[in-house]
């Protein structure tokens, strides 16, 4: 329940707004919408892999975050992702962590 996590009910997180097909639509262009969600899942998973967690789309309306041992939590959007990820993994998800950055750099083929 906060500005990033949103509250009960329809939530427009800021990451939902970009003029790409599938980002704004709710009722039309279902394929585009699913494709955009799949991209989001893939992007999140690239980072979550470092914490032994994975994200998956749930019915096109929410996401499920899960650890390798099966602990899972449903989240609404990217705003909910990191608080939930920290809760499930029991450690901070810090983008300024050197080890994590190094991992991302390596994976990026850079």
């Amino acid at each position: 329940m906060c500005s990033l996590c949103g509250v009960i009910g329809g939530n427009e997180h800021w990451t939902d707004a970009a003029a790409r097909p599938g980002v704004f639509t709710r009722n039309v262009e279902r394929l585009d919408r699913r494709r955009e969600r799949a991209r989001r899942v893939a992007a999140a998973n690239r980072v979550l892999a470092a914490f032994d967690m994975s994200l998956s789309d749930w019915q096109g309306s929410a996401f499920v975050l899960a650890t390798r041992t099966g602990k899972s939590e449903m989240i609404e959007d990217l705003g909910h992702l990191w608080p939930a990820a920290e809760r499930l993994s029991g450690r901070p998800c810090d983008p300024l962590d050197e080890a994590l950055i190094a991992r991302m750099e390596e994976a990026g083929g850079g």
Partner: peptide, 14 residues
Amino acid sequence: WTGFGVWLTMLLNR
């Protein structure tokens, strides 16, 4: 944009 969103939400969360 998606990668940026993941990154900034992560940064702001922490």
